[in-house]
Design a protein around this nucleic acid. Structure first.
Lengths: 117, 117
DNA sequence: CAGTATCCAAAGGGATACTG
DNA sequence: CAGTATCCCTTTGGATACTG
């Protein structure tokens, strides 16, 4: 007798994948990270109006908090008048770079693939 | 005078990233793909009960249709009694492998990072 | 400027039962 | 076995206005 398919809940890869998705899945997190990669440190206003097109302040605020809680971005209040706030990637955020690069590569290839359908 | 920050809507990377996310974001798509990578061709029942823990038939059905529409999986009806259906990754699905690997790697590292908080 | 508050619509997803 | 159908709840996200 043979147990043919193992249950993936007990699988480490599946577990790690689900962890990653729980944090990063959704419409905005990767876009924010990419924007910070490309432009470096940015202010709330810049993320809102320029680099992450279409996001609203409420959503951006919430996404940035999630990223901060998970040690992927740092929030810095600047001594300016009026006060400005800067967001920067942490060292740990480097770990997301391969994911983003792979997603972009897939997006590019997928576009041409679907076009030729 | 200097235009300091470009609008990312016109950026190819951001565009590709958003395309990829539109298709692959969510709780299940990557899990289904990973499961097919690990176990090879599988039947609906196996994906449902064994390899993708927790998904319901309605959702699995819908996710598989999405993946099929986007040329990532192939659906095959087998000549058995009762009828069975097999799902296999397409050649094009190889393009998602780097994303999944990167997500898993991130998930592993992120777990240890957050634990030590 | 950097958010929050409020309100609301749509999508995602789960439980359960049912069908060919 | 491989799905669909129905119902319903939660989450996500958008519009808009407001505050320190």
């Amino acid at each position: 007798m043979k147990t043919d398919v193992c249950i993936d809940t007990s699988n480490e890869n599946m577990r790690a994948l689900r962890d990653a998705l729980e944090l990063l899945s959704g419409k905005w997190k990767f876009c924010i990270l990419l924007s910070l990669y490309m432009h470096g440190t940015q202010r709330f206003k810049d993320l809102l109006a320029n680099s992450v097109g279409g996001i609203t302040p409420k959503v951006l605020s919430k996404e940035l908090q999630d990223l901060e809680d998970n040690l992927l971005v740092t929030r810095t209040v600047n001594n300016t008048k009026p006060v400005t706030v800067s967001y920067t990637l942490t060292e740990h955020a480097i770990e997301t770079q391969p994911v983003i690069n792979a997603l972009i590569a897939f997006g590019v290839k997928h576009r041409t693939k679907i076009k030729s359908k």
